[in-house]
């Protein structure tokens, strides 16, 4: 997680790198949430999914099948979140 974060969009980082922007929307840290892929149905914690930053925005992909799990874009006036590629999010309490 130390710099530099690659923003070219060509190389995947861990979901950890995307945890900041998602924390704003989910009102909490989502690193340990288990996300199930809507494509291949495999599950992994958010921190170990693949993240692409600066697309512009943030894209989360399944490390197994590369299916887009979530897309998040923030503008000065709103946040747009698309979770249609993931079948479920399970949060530890």
């Amino acid at each position: 997680m130390n710099s530099p974060i690659d923003t070219s969009g060509e190389s995947a980082l861990d979901g950890s790198a995307a945890a900041g922007p998602f924390a704003d929307v989910f009102a909490g840290d989502v690193s340990a949430a288990v996300v199930t892929c809507g494509g291949c149905r495999s599950s992994a914690v958010f921190a170990e999914q693949h993240a692409y930053l600066g697309a512009p925005g943030t894209v989360l992909r399944c490390p197994g099948c590369d299916h887009v799990l979530a897309r998040l874009v923030q503008t000065p006036t709103e946040v747009w979140l698309d979770l249609s590629g993931s079948s479920s999010w399970r949060f530890p309490l």
């Binding site: 840290d29 288990v34 495999s42 599950s43 170990e48 197994g64």
Partner: peptide, 19 residues
């Protein structure tokens, strides 16, 4: 990664990250 991981020890969730 096809199995759900064991519960993380420690304060999962924790304080809400903010600026």
């Amino acid at each position: 990664m096809t199995e759900a991981p064991a519960r993380t020890r420690g304060k999962v969730g924790g304080p809400r990250p903010r600026w």
